[in-house]
Design a protein around this nucleic acid. Structure first.
Lengths: 223, 223
DNA sequence: TTCAAAATGTTGTAATAACAACTGAATTGT
DNA sequence: ACAATTCAGTTGTTATTACAACATTTTGAA
């Protein structure tokens, strides 16, 4: 498993932990490495999850199948990223999505109970691990909540203003840069790109915002 | 603080912990009780959060103010419910919402670091507390992810089928009950109620679903 | 049982969005 | 510098949605 230490070290879970400490931890957690072929399932929808997984080589896809068998790609899992961690925290709920290898993959599994139950053998960095883990879940939570606030608005205009307002507040300035290009922003808000461009133009024409490329400015007074 | 033990006992955080154990824990966590008047702020947007709060009497509102000062109610906090817990996990991010008393409120605050750092004085139920806490955050995460999957669909029909499909899979049956009335379902999916009713009628006319009150059945073959 | 209120369904219309097709600007690689 | 490609904005058309107003059904209390 040592060959993957550089990736582990960069991961959110092991942030701030040295390579040596990681090695101790992996033993302490009885982490196990498993290899998967392309198109192989790592997790099937309906499984009860007791371990968290981290892809350390290759990429996997989180997919969901609806009642009629139609598949939707929820997200892509890159090396260093955890998956199934939410369901590992709630052992009584079966997972409602599948994890499928997009390429050959190597995955490290760590038992959730071992993560949570501080080991008696005095693994000093365990507390740090638990905090990183909680932090990762909390961050995901934050990202989802924020997105939800924009998405729950009914019109493109409202969605946009909600998003831009949040970015402005985050930047503590009425002028700020956004991290998306137009297509990405449209995807993020689940709207059409051209409709987005169109609405931005209108907002600018009405003097509510001004923008240039990815830099936006909100007007203090709209009238 | 003893007067609130019944509420604490029923809360997610202290689930499965006896009243005596809770009292020990509260001491171990140096929990403190604070009283607020109606319309008083418990948390201001921009604050850095180090404690999680639990309302034990009264109700509070989670609100957000946008760039132009327009307020939106995000949710209501009832007795026994935690708030600000996500931000407590990420001390470097200021909170982006405010918590405002809707009525007079009593709130118990517990220091996040004390929750996370297992006390040396051998408080046996601490591990349980941490697990409950993580479970609460993970559940919120699950709820948000699920809702997001429906909301990210573009048409009412797609949103509805996504929701109904998920409920069907959860129930492991093509026939199932939903926990919402029409208005609540419309609010949940951020769509208009009459448009929702209308689309349900069409789906039934096309033989894709059948329903009666809150019981729905999905058709295996749509053609 | 009867009545009022609440919940659900229906219809038409105006507003809004998606989509397609296109233009022009900006960016990139050679 | 040039061509190729990506990115952003514009326009017109069609599809979808919100909204209002009303009809019907269900519910619950008197």
């Amino acid at each position: 498993m040592q060959e993957y230490l550089p990736i582990l070290k960069k991961s959110n879970l092991f942030q701030g932990v040295t390579s040596e400490e990681i090695q101790t931890m992996l033993t302490c957690l009885s982490a196990r490495l498993k290899h998967y072929k392309k198109d192989e399932f790592i997790i099937h929808s309906g499984d009860y999850i007791r371990s968290i997984g981290m892809v350390v080589s290759g990429t996997a896809l989180i997919i969901q199948e609806d009642f009629w068998g139609k598949r939707t790609i929820i997200s892509e899992v890159m090396p260093g990223t955890l998956f199934a961690e939410t369901y590992a925290c709630i052992p009584s709920s079966p997972i409602e999505m599948s994890v499928l290898c997009d390429t050959e993959c190597d995955v490290i599994f760590m038992d959730f109970n071992r993560i949570m139950n501080i080991c008696s053998s005095a693994c000093n960095f365990h507390t740090r691990l638990v905090q990183n883990f909680i932090s990762a879940i909390a961050k995901k939570n934050m990202v989802l909540t924020k997105k939800m606030q924009h998405m729950s608005k009914k019109t493109i205009r409202e969605k946009l203003l909600s998003y831009l307002s949040a970015e402005s507040i985050k930047a503590s300035s009425s002028t700020f840069d956004i991290p998306f290009n137009r297509q990405q922003l449209a995807d993020y808000l689940s709207i059409d790109r051209s409709a987005l461009s169109n609405e931005l133009s209108k907002l600018q024409a009405e003097g509510i915002i001004t923008y240039n490329k990815n830099q936006f400015t909100l007007s203090t007074f709209s009238g």
